[in-house]
Structures are given as C-alpha cells and as structure tokens.
Design a protein around this nucleic acid. Structure first.
Lengths: 253, 253
DNA sequence: CGATATTTGTTCGTATGTATA
DNA sequence: TTATACATACGAACAAATATC
C-alpha cells in the first residue's frame, strides 16, 4: 500500500478539457508542472503511481507516461523502475570564485556532501593537462575520477589531475576523506585557490550520464579549472561535469 | 574486403579494425574528430564528400553519414545540402567579469561584432525582473530581444530589460548603433559593470534555435546577469542564451 | 534468505481525429 | 473529394527493478 499518501496531489479539482485542441498529456504535464513549481508537491516527494494518476485523470496509463516523460525531459522529476517517480530538487546555486569548495557549498545549502572515488591511475599528462599545470608534456600525473553528491544525488563528476610525485598516494587520502580539501590537508596544502575557470556545455555521453544518474543526452555544464596552492604553484587541473538540471553556477564578483 | 586504410585526411595510416567490437562508424567518427581537434583539418575547411570518404575507408556511404552525424551532433561540423560538410570554428572564449562587453570581446578575437534588434516593447516587469532591477512588480520596463553575431554567425540571443521611463526610446539607439555600450552612451551612461551572474544550461527550444541558427535541441548556455551604472543603480537585467557549440565562457579572477 | 506485491519500462495491437498532399 | 501521414489515445500483456514481509 502506501503510495499516493499526498492524496490530492495535483490539485485534483481541474478536469481535463477533452476535444478542445489541447492534448490530454499536455494538460496533465502542465498541471503537474505548475504544482511542482508552486511547491504544492515538495522536492523529493513521490508522485502517485502512474496507475493512480491515470485513474485520477480518467486516462490511460500511456497518456500519463507521456506527460511524465515531458517533466523528466525538463529534469523536474525522475522515475526509477520499481520505486516510483520523484520530484527533483531545484538547481543548487553553486558559487564559483577564487575559493570554491564543493563540500562547503553543499553543506551550506543544508545538504550532505560526499565525493566518491571511482578510479585513480598514474598516467603521463596529456598536452592540455601539462600546459594547465605548467609541466612538460608526458610528465607523470595522478588522474582521479570522482563523483560528487549532495544527499546521495550526483551533482557532478570530475577528472582531476595532480602532479606526481608530490601527490603520490593522494587517491587513498581522498577515498578516506571524501573531500579534496580534507585530503589536501594531509599533504600540507592548507589553502588553495582557483587560478582560471572555463565554462562550456554539451550533451552527456552514455558513461557520463551513468555516473551522474541522468539520461544520456541530458545537458552537462563543463567546467575546466586550475587550482594553485598557497605559494602560487599549480597543483590541480580539473574538468568537472555538472548535471545542468541540478546545478546553477553563480559567478562571484 | 578491407585494405581500407590509406586515407590521408584522417591522419592516414590507420585502417579500420573490422570485427573487433568497434563499429566502423565509430572509428571513422573518432578519427575525424581527432583530426579536427588536433588542427589537422582546419576550422572552416570543407571535408571530402561523403562519397569520397566512403571510398577511402572502404565502407558504404551510409556508414560515413552515421559518423558525420555524430560529429554534427557534437557541433564539430555542419553539413549543408548541396554544399558539403564544413568544420565549425572552435568556441570563442568569452570572458565574463565586472566589465563584459560583447563588442569588445568579439572584435578582440578578430571578428566583426554586431547586434540585431529583433523586437522591443514596453511591458510590466515580471516578478523575477522586478526583483533583479529593484523595482516594484509590474513597474514598466523596456524589453529588448536581440541577436549577437560574430562575422554574421549568431553567438547569442538575449532578452534585456531596462527600467522606464529612464530608457524610453532606447530601442532606436540600439538598433542604430548595434551595441549596448554605444547605445548607453546616448543616454549618459558612460560606464556600466556587472553586479551578478548566474549560469545554467539546457536544450534549445524551436524559436531559440531558429534565432541562433542551430538545430532545435542543441545545447544552450543560459546566462542571467544584472548590470549597474557608474552610480551603482541597477539599469539592466539580461538573460542571454549562448550557442554552446560556439562560445566558451571564461571566468575572470 | 526466499517469496510476493508493487511500480516503472517495453512492446504488441487497435481506433480516431487532424493536417496535408 | 480522396488518400496519406501523423499525432493522439486506449487496451492488454509481460519484463525488470525494487520494496516488503
């Protein structure tokens, strides 16, 4: 049982206008969309099941599914097989400036931050990374592949390169601490600041989408940045991919 | 079959690996992609015809088309019926900071900047705009719809709101000058700076895609900003849509 | 742990209205 | 007018993932 606990969810009241040139799926999508944006359905809440919505609106389940697909396409809801359909949180405002700290930003928003280490390897620096870090092309760097979550939901995935041998073993520190800031502390880097930031956007490839738990083809914000330590030495080149549905960047003056 | 690999365009030499789990179209796409990114095929250059590429790789033209579709999907090439397939220009680096001037940025990149006025109207401010400009909701503002081009190619389209009556008639100044900076000069605004900037990304709707001359669904960078005049008064709220294929934002420190 | 119910995902098929050639 | 294509909507069944007991 359970399900549909929030009984009247869609405002209930408004019947569908059939045969007036407005498709049923569109009316349902607009109605749910308005309910979500007005906060009548809270972020994180579960929508009634497709069957329940179909019954409520007096349409076939297909019609409801079409409406939900529209909302999912806008990133407003997320459906999981076997679980249900849930309202996504509004985009998190993510300040980018000299001192950008994922964990600080997320916890200040009242959500729990954690970074997962997906893979780590010592590799020769590709030309772009080498230039960003001021190294000779092919110099050894530690490449980390990470996923950054707020309350368990992936906000971004990043590929970070650190110069070797200075940061050898860093991946273990990161895996244990779940935060760059805390891992840096183990390496004597008490402070680090952003040197440069480039921002682009594109559609997600299959593997990227999988890491971010979004549908392939949904849009990503691509953020390439270089960080320096307190002494001004370049210590980190990162390319972060943000799920554009879940994050909004804010440029600090 | 096979023996396909003498092609010169793709760095030559590498023949297709058939039957090894890597689809032919993917190998062709990857090869062309690498050639373009490495500059072995220059921006603006015309690719060989689909038929020529098919012959070179020893595959059917359909296979080449599939590979080219991938590149077009990434915005790396643009195919025009009857003309051919051309390599797109790399994204223009667009600095965003306190003093961001479209015309300066574009002309410094050696390209000709111009802004077209699409529409203008005096309207009551919607809540978001009113808050951004520090006005009462519903206060009169001048809404401008513009398209900004570099060498004729649209880079962005913007919806700009200016408070009335201070800027009444501004649309004529803008249409004549083709630049915000120059139009402001007529209104005694010698200097203006950016107060805040928010950055998101999403897919383009049909009308937006048409204004930017891109395919619907291609990705946009959405930039919402507020500008102030020399005295610190908020004078402009703008929502710019950049074609993500053509622009890369650079955050100035 | 296994068995069962719930819920979304997928694929058939069918019928109808609407816009276009 | 007819013919065609397309979007819309409904129905039934099954598959796959998840939750619960």
């Amino acid at each position: 049982m359970a399900a549909s606990g929030d009984g009247s969810v869609t405002g209930g009241t408004v019947p569908l206008a059939r045969g007036e040139g407005l498709a049923a799926w569109r009316q349902i999508a607009d109605g749910l969309s308005a309910d979500i944006e007005a906060g009548r359905i809270a972020a994180g809440a579960q929508l009634p099941t497709e069957a329940a919505l179909a019954a409520r609106f007096g349409v076939n389940r297909h019609t409801v599914r079409r409406a939900l697909a529209v909302l999912a396409g806008r990133g407003m809801v997320r459906a999981t097989q076997g679980r249900g359909t849930f309202v996504e949180a509004p985009p998190l405002a993510y300040p980018i400036g000299r001192r950008t700290r994922f964990s600080e930003i997320v916890s200040r928003a009242g959500r729990e931050a954690w970074g997962d280490l997906v893979a780590a390897a010592a590799v020769p620096a590709d030309p772009g990374t080498a230039e960003a870090l001021g190294l000779a092309p092919g110099a050894p760097v530690l490449e980390l592949l990470t996923i950054h979550r707020a309350d368990g939901t992936p906000l971004s995935t990043a590929r970070t390169c650190l110069p070797l041998p200075r940061f050898s073993g860093f991946e273990r520190a990161y895996a244990a601490r779940g935060s760059l800031t805390r891992a840096y502390a183990e390496y004597g880097v008490g402070d680090y600041t952003r040197l440069s930031t480039r921002i682009g956007a594109r559609a997600a490839a299959a593997d990227e989408a999988a890491r971010l738990e979004i549908a392939p083809g949904r849009v990503l914000i691509v953020l390439a940045s270089v960080n320096v330590d307190g002494a001004g030495t370049r210590i980190q080149a990162t390319r972060s991919l943000f799920a554009a549905d879940r994050v909004e960047l804010v440029v600090e003056g």
